[in-house]
Structure formats: C-alpha cells, structure tokens
C-alpha cells in the first residue's frame, strides 16, 4: 500500500501506466497536460498539485507536489476539487467526466480538446486505480 498522492504512489502509478497502457489504443496518442488541484486534504486541509503530461500517448511526467510553482508548467487543463472527490475518481467510484458533470470538480481549458481526451484520461485513471493505495 502506498499513500495516495505521495512520491511512492506517483512512481508506482507512472510505472504502471508506462507498462500497461498502449500509447495508441488506450491513450490515443494524446498530447495534453493536466494539473489536478487536490484541495482540503486532511488533517490540515492542505493542497496537493498532481500534474501529468502526455506526448504522443507517452506519459512524460507524473508529479505530485505541494509546491505551487508547478502551476508555471502551464497545463492545458486545470481540474480543481476536493480530496474526497479525487479519492472517488481514483478508486473508480466516479469517472472524472462524471465528477465534472456533478459539479464536484471545476475544469479550465479548451472544452473541445477536453472532449477528445475524456476516453484516454478515463483509461489512464482506470489503470492508476490498480495501484494498491491507502487514503
């Protein structure tokens, strides 16, 4: 078990995606970067930034950090929401698209482009779900 959004978790998640997902079939050769802003993390309501970047379907970066400077990476999409919602997304109870629909997360970025990556991001999330995680 690794703690959700810890360095160890990030490493295992990245490894799993790189080994298990097909760049073309599962990740549709996507070119996109996404910054998840995970808010209100107990016990002291801190925020963790969870950044991923894909180039041609390859997961170049998966970083989790409390350092705000990660915002400078100018992600294509910023998705902000509560820790409890990200847990639901990560453990497969809710897709990120459903979280958006339910107003649980707020997204900024080009909506038309977002549409093209909903499926690969869903495949990504499903894969990452497989990391034995402790919340």
């Amino acid at each position: 078990m690794v703690k959700y959004l810890s360095q160890e978790w990030a490493e295992q998640a990245k490894k799993k995606v790189l080994t298990e997902l097909d760049k073309a079939k599962d990740l549709k050769n996507m070119n996109a970067s996404l910054l998840n802003v995970v808010q209100n993390i107990p016990p002291d309501n801190k925020t963790i930034y969870y950044y991923i970047k894909f180039t041609d379907g390859n997961l170049d970066e998966l970083i989790t950090s409390t350092d705000e400077s990660i915002k400078q990476k100018q992600a294509d999409f910023i998705v902000a929401g509560d820790y409890t919602t990200f847990i639901q997304i990560n453990n497969g109870q809710m897709s990120s698209a459903m979280a958006l629909l339910k107003n649980r997360v707020k997204m900024t970025g080009n909506k038309m482009k977002a549409l093209t990556i909903t499926k690969p991001i869903d495949n990504y999330n499903r894969c990452v779900n497989g990391v034995p995680t402790d919340y």
Binding site: L115, T118, K119
Partner: peptide, 13 residues
Amino acid sequence: EELGHFEELIETL
C-alpha cells in the same frame, strides 16, 4: 469525428 468523441464521452460517463 466530434460525434465520435461525444460517443466516447457518453461511454466514459
């Protein structure tokens, strides 16, 4: 093409 993405969105949802 966009309708294809829409179908994927529906499937994801």
